[in-house]
Design a protein around this nucleic acid. Structure first.
Lengths: 361, 361
DNA sequence: GGTCTCTGTGAATCAACTT
DNA sequence: CAAGTTGATTCACAGAGAC
């Protein structure tokens, strides 16, 4: 996974224009990209008052202003194109937005021939209410997770996610609260440092789901460095790009104070994605050569009996089938996992060939 | 709300090409459009199997195939343009999709200068599992709700929605189960009639939120007629367009068997959106003229005392303020609703002027 | 110290009517 | 039509302060 040209970027925040800095990064060097670009909110010019008469301070930052969708699209197309170049073939990308920009992002992602894996909804448990009762409360943000092409292999720690979700498959709607309290960075005046700081729990799930230990995660809109802080904690590397020096200073401080989770911590199994390590069991030919399958005949639980030849194939009417394919003959076209379907007989006992291969290991 | 040219379409399903049929409908005649257009599912050539070996029958109907995104975009642009023409200025539109098509829809909606009100996530409580454990379970579908332009007034039954949500503002993530059981239409062979039949609960919420009683709701991809069935139940009118005669036959049967909710049903208040009826209370001058405010002085809860003149203005230092504006003086610039801020005193009792006007009514 | 109350605040395309 | 006036609206937390 090493890339010498990448060393000078690793675990650093680059000050500068997003596009220019992306261009400096070596091709095919990044494992994961997380991008939370400006949303282009287009709020009105008037003031929005809270019900108690106070003003509501929404996002009015210069960095969120664009002249038109056309300008926004052009910008999006450029940074996504750079992301394609620097991403490893087995890497993947997350982007984030609301209805203001998410359709621009998704459309361009598809036009650039990226391949969408999932669309995720972040359901906020404590969104800002709609003070005037004009519409449904905007209680969600949206994420898109995608690869460079349809055939890309990508990291997905399926079992880790399942363990995080009461042993059930993790779905595409995630509930988290917004970033507040101690986690929310304050400036020297005690005001919120950044208008749109993201919660660490969200980044934690993204990183645990789609990276391996020591992977390199790039965030081209680094802000206050949530991506970097969580990456460090979880023993991943980060690269940040940010054009506001103030944010960088706070982010560097923040990350410096993060402790990596200890290797003695029971949670360290999660960090290694231990549950998702691929275990290589012996193949059927290995078992035969090592004389682990003592019988020449296999049985299913309906007591059908078949002959297993020295090539590891099941012969039926002089035609050779794999142990899996052979299930179709006996199960009306249903194609099942042969390891769990076929048994040998020892006296009156049926022993699954799947148990045999796992015992060998 | 009557439009004579519309009579021949009302509560009927038109057999034919979506675009051609849309063109026949009069301009600015429709209150609400609900559109669940064909999805652009790319299942690829591989067959997907359930764990038990049965083939998974996903969406692979002919009507779902398009040559490319370009074709899909072109088609989307055309039917949305027709929708703009036939929609009343105060009408609104819902579209629905998954990540395969929702970004195409949203992007084009914005390009056509529609104005998005909300994006809604339908969280499925019982989604199809991901059989191979290759990604997060797709447990959501997405809806976009929008008007013809930024300044469009539209129907939103805010309080009705609040009542449906434990008296709290309804958010943008909706939990419903997928359509199954008795609700799911079967064909004569007992198989599911349509691959993407929508649950009635979903349509119920959409219709209750964004239409008034007797409104006309158009569904250009009518399918098995969920929109029509729910519209009828809730005392709304529908127009359906569908190019598959088989679906139309089943849908007509289905809708014929729907009973409108009785006017004696306690739920009928919801149908009329009674909670959202605008109530006109007397104004401050009316109350003074009719001598309903017996005192010349008003108090706030801090016991500040002000003089209310015969013009209904509060005089402070010889300057006249409205009852609302006057709150700014006593609340450090906070501009509050005067009706709930000012009281008269009867003995030791404070009586809110808001209570007085509501009693008068 | 513990419990209760009060206050502050978050990616917001946040009004309708009269003069 | 622009400017001014009237009036209808909030939820989950965290943290500070009161008792």
């Amino acid at each position: 996974m090493k890339n010498d040209n990448l060393d000078k970027f690793i675990n650093k925040i680059k000050l500068g224009n997003c596009l220019e800095e992306l261009k400096k990064i070596p091709s095919k060097s990044i494992d994961l990209i997380f991008a939370d670009p400006p949303y282009f909110m287009q709020t009105g010019t008037g003031t929005l008052y809270r019900i108690n008469g106070n003003k509501y301070n929404g996002v009015d930052d210069e960095w969120d202003k664009f002249d038109s969708y056309k300008e926004y699209d052009k910008f999006t197309r450029k940074w996504l194109t750079q992301c394609r170049r620097i991403l490893k073939d087995k890497g993947s990308i997350w982007v984030m937005g609301t209805f203001h920009n998410i359709y621009r992002l998704g459309y361009i992602i598809q036009d650039l021939n990226f391949w969408i894996i999932n669309d995720i909804t972040w359901e906020k448990t404590n969104p800002t209410p709609n003070f005037r009762g004009t519409k449904f409360v905007n209680s969600n943000e949206n994420l898109i997770w995608f690869t460079k092409s349809q055939n890309s292999k990508f990291t997905f720690n399926y079992k880790t996610m399942k363990n995080e979700n009461k042993k059930k498959q993790m779905g595409s709607v995630w509930k988290f609260s917004i970033c507040s309290g101690k986690e929310r960075l304050k400036d020297n005046n005690g005001n919120k440092l950044h208008n749109t700081q993201k919660p660490e729990d969200l980044l934690r799930r993204i990183i645990l789901a789609s990276t391996k230990i020591n992977d390199v995660i790039l965030d081209p809109f680094f802000g206050t460095g949530t991506t970097g802080a969580v990456a460090k904690k979880l023993h991943r590397n980060f690269i940040g790009i940010e054009n506001n020096e103030k944010y960088i200073n706070y982010a560097n401080d923040r990350i410096k104070n993060v402790d990596k989770i200890s290797k003695n911590d029971p949670f360290f199994d999660y960090i290694k994605a231990k549950f998702d390590e691929k275990i290589k069991y012996p193949k059927i030919l290995d078992l035969i050569r090592e004389n682990k399958i003592k019988s020449k005949y296999l049985y299913n639980l309906k007591e059908d009996k078949v002959y297993l030849n020295s090539e590891g194939k099941i012969k039926i009417n002089n035609v050779k089938y794999s142990i899996h394919k052979a299930t179709e003959i006996f199960e009306n076209g249903r194609y099942l996992n042969g390891w769990k379907y076929w048994y040998i007989k020892e006296g009156n006992n049926y022993i699954s060939i799947d148990d045999i291969r796992k015992d060998v290991k």
